[in-house]
Structure formats: C-alpha cells, structure tokens
Amino acid sequence: MMGTTIAIGALGPALAIGMIGAKGVEAIGRNPEAQSNITTNMILAIAFAEAVAIYALVVSLIIKFT
C-alpha cells in the first residue's frame, strides 16, 4: 500500500520537473543573459511540483508508521 502510494504519487511530479527543467534550459539557451533570473524561477517552480510528490510521501509515511 505504501509503495503503491508513493509510486503513483511520484509519477506526475517527475514528469512536471522534467518539463520545467527542459523548458528552463531551452529558455537559457535562447537568452543566456537572463540565466540567474530563469534559474531562480525554475527552482521555485520545481519546489511547487515537488510538493505534490511530498504529499504522497507524507501519506505513505503515515500509512507505514501509524
């Protein structure tokens, strides 16, 4: 049960982080001067996408340890 929760819950965020990274690198390639700005926003967006996986992780930890 715990394994299934985190396995399914990590799918979406994994895709999202991949897309954010791809688009971020693409943007830096087009406009290298804006690199620091793009990197900051990219890390913020990654943190939001990652939060979804973290919710799944919290649920699976609750299933496992309580």
């Binding site: 990652e50 939060a51 973290i54 919710y55 992780l57 919290v58 930890l61």
Partner: peptide, 8 residues
C-alpha cells in the same frame, strides 16, 4: 503540508 512534508 508542503513545509512539514519537505522537512520530515
């Protein structure tokens, strides 16, 4: 939940 989950 975002803050708690990341830290835990």
């Amino acid at each position: 939940f975002r803050l708690f989950g990341n830290i835990i």
